[in-house]
Design a protein around this nucleic acid. Structure first.
Lengths: 215, 215
DNA sequence: CGGCATCCGTGACGATACTG
DNA sequence: CAGTATCGTCACGGATGCCG
């Protein structure tokens, strides 16, 4: 069993459960929806499969993750968060909030994945109510995910949206540039880096809400 | 330098800075005010002085902690959080919030310190506005700290209060029993475990606000 | 190929002893 | 009191191999 702090303290209890290296990043990955072992591994560059196995087992024992076998045709296994673990969303949100101020611009040898940025931007953006209620599908490099804007906040999920009102296609580097404030949201007609379809003005509002969050 | 994730992700950035073992607990200790090396060590049972030194150095390099030499008579050195680090209060609060649900009751071999509970209770209690605005001094085992109730929330700090409106004396075990919901706040006249002085009804309200937070 | 166990080198951690 | 030095142990990262 893992090292525990043996302190009767809520903060220490949290660290007992998700304080080891990689644990919270696994939760980050699963916050966008269930994932398979291999997909988790490639969303966590450098983790090593044995550590991933160990962490998933530990999270399972603490009822934060369940291993579920997909029905018939897929014949695959996915890991997903339990309702218990959804309380961790607040912790991740607080971390994303503060981490935005540390973000700067991507380093040269640094991994960049659209899902990481989208998740953090979705939970930290303060003026989500300036974005029209709709479903926005985002295609960022190889990632496909979507954001539902409802009740003045965002619900991000992985995968394509069933009925997207708008589609946004861009590279992770471009999204990083927007988040860091380096790039104003340009007129998509004039800028080949961003392609919008469907509800174009809504999509532009979404990107504008993201602009400069990491400054 | 420590292991970093090399991910352009706000959450990973936070973990790069405070993700190692003990780091966040050091921040927890300092959230109640500046502390000396030895006091930090005894607030973090099991840490080992070399690790504490290493963590303090790392936190210093990231401008989260400053080492300050106290004026004349004290001739001592304290560590305190920088304004940058105060953003971490939100992270700790979110962790305390979720950790409360994991807390249960203290284990046999578990360390219990009043300051840990008071800090978490102070930042997570939802109905702080039911407590009269005042300064409450808490003496819990060997810890002395105080809470200012203002604007419907609590500001906890270590040490005695200059002008306490009320004083509460109890053991950490008793406070744990209240937090876990095992112990209703008793009439202090009838219960020798709790001693109240000054604004007794205000102090009772404070304890009632804490009751059952960890259930 | 996805999921996981195993082995190994390196580094982080925990405990204790020691110094200014 | 405020650390540094040392050392045994454990966790991590990377690679390999097994098995459905």
């Amino acid at each position: 069993m893992s090292r525990v702090y043996n302190q009767y303290c809520p903060v220490a209890r949290v660290l007992d459960v998700v304080g080891e290296r990689w644990s919270l990043l696994i939760v980050r990955e699963l916050l966008l929806g269930p994932r398979r072992f291999t997909d988790l591994a490639q969303g966590l560059p450098g983790i090593g499969t044995s550590v991933l196995t160990a962490r998933l087992k530990q999270l399972e024992q603490n009822d934060l993750v369940v291993k579920r076998t997909l029905p018939a045709p897929a014949a695959s296994v996915v890991y997903e968060l339990t309702p218990d673990a959804l309380g961790l969303a607040g912790v991740l949100a607080a971390m994303a909030d503060w981490g935005m101020t540390l973000l700067g611009r991507p380093g040269d040898d640094e991994h960049v994945q659209g899902r990481w940025l989208v998740l953090s931007l979705a939970v930290t953006t303060k003026d989500a109510q300036s974005v029209p209620e709709a479903t926005y599908e985002l295609r960022i490099d190889d990632d496909v995910l979507h954001i539902r804007a409802v009740d003045g906040h965002f619900q991000p999920s992985q995968g394509p949206a069933p009925n997207p009102d708008a589609t946004i296609t861009m590279s992770a580097a471009t999204l990083a540039a927007i988040a860091s404030g380096d790039l104003d949201v340009p007129d998509p007609q004039a800028d080949s880096r961003i392609a919008l379809h469907g509800n174009v003005t809504g999509a532009q509002r979404l990107l504008e809400a993201f602009r400069g969050s990491a400054s």
